[in-house]
């Protein structure tokens, strides 16, 4: 028999689940992975069926955006640096992956408030579906980006071996940020404005439009490099433009930052799991 004893309101387990938090996460991922993948697949399928061009848009949209960037920055504005468009597009593509996933995941739990009054589901499922479907679309964008780079005179190199690692670190960071925002949003809807503003601000200071290493040494530069996204964009540019392996310091910093943040967000997600339906009742 499984007993839920309440002491200070801490939720105990209902079904036959392990008690150790790490084992519990493994258990949940295993048990619910079919739902997560199926739901992601179903929503992507529905999206493609809705639009006339279907999945072609996943490739067409980044192509159109790249042409737009090139037209504005290389033709109209004629930026002094010849590779500015490539420089900009790289910063933009990887930033967009982060920004669009966080924004898309924000309402993922809140929008399921009604469903969550009817059945127990671990809340992480919903932001996870958003993260996965955005990741899939990002893969299409990345494919277009790489083709564009190769055409522009930046072919693949040995440094590409580091790319999966940097992508994995960014994915960890995306999950780490998406989980808490998906939790906070339905409880404090005002947080949406705060988070959107924060994202906009981050975009301006993450070195998408300028090169962080060229900043004059001082407090601004120090603060610039506290931001893990600034490091990530630097690393992507090292790999894709300079054909160099990313700086070890950047790798270590972003990996540690993402890991710690990830552990915190998993802990938070577990903590609020059976409390959220009570809080969502008032919506």
């Amino acid at each position: 028999m499984l007993t839920q004893e309440s002491t200070t309101g801490s939720p105990a387990e209902h079904f036959s689940r392990p008690q150790n938090p790490f084992a519990l996460w493994i258990h949940d991922f295993r048990r619910y992975r079919e739902i997560i993948f199926f739901r992601t697949y179903a929503s992507l399928k529905a999206e493609t069926e809705k639009a006339y061009l279907g999945y072609v848009w996943w490739f067409l949209e980044p192509v159109v955006n790249t042409i737009l960037f090139y037209t504005i920055f290389a033709i109209f504005l004629k930026h002094q640096s010849p590779n500015y468009v490539v420089f900009l597009v790289i910063g933009f593509v990887f930033w967009e992956w982060f920004q669009s996933t966080v924004s898309f995941s924000m309402p993922s739990i809140g929008s399921k408030a009604n469903l969550l009054q009817l059945i127990y589901l671990p809340k992480f499922i919903f932001p996870m579906c958003s993260i996965l479907s955005n990741a899939w679309k990002f893969v299409c964008v990345l494919a277009v980006l790489l083709v564009y780079l190769w055409i522009s005179g930046f072919p693949p190199s040995v440094a590409y071996l580091a790319l999966p690692l940097v992508l994995a670190i960014q994915l960890a960071l995306i999950i780490a940020v998406s989980f808490p925002t998906a939790i906070i949003f339905p409880i404090f809807p005002d947080s949406q404005i705060f988070i959107q503003t924060l994202l906009r601000g981050l975009m301006l200071v993450s070195g998408i439009f300028f090169e962080g290493s060229k900043l004059a040494p001082g407090p601004a530069k120090t603060w610039f490099y506290v931001n893990p996204i600034a490091h990530l964009i630097d690393m992507y540019r090292s790999i894709l433009i300079d054909h160099e392996f990313p700086a070890l310091w950047s790798l270590a910093y972003t990996a540690t930052f993402s890991l710690i943040f990830l552990v915190f967000s998993f802990w938070l997600m577990r903590k609020v799991d059976r409390i959220m339906p009570k809080l969502l009742t008032r919506e």
Partner: peptide
């Protein structure tokens, strides 16, 4: 149905029995 946690008392279900509201 295991949707919310209790604040006092005890609640037990036999292992592996899934309780669900007909919805």
């Amino acid at each position: 149905a295991g949707i919310i946690s209790i604040d006092r008392g005890s609640f037990s279900v036999e292992d592996n029995m899934h309780v669900q509201l007909l919805t």
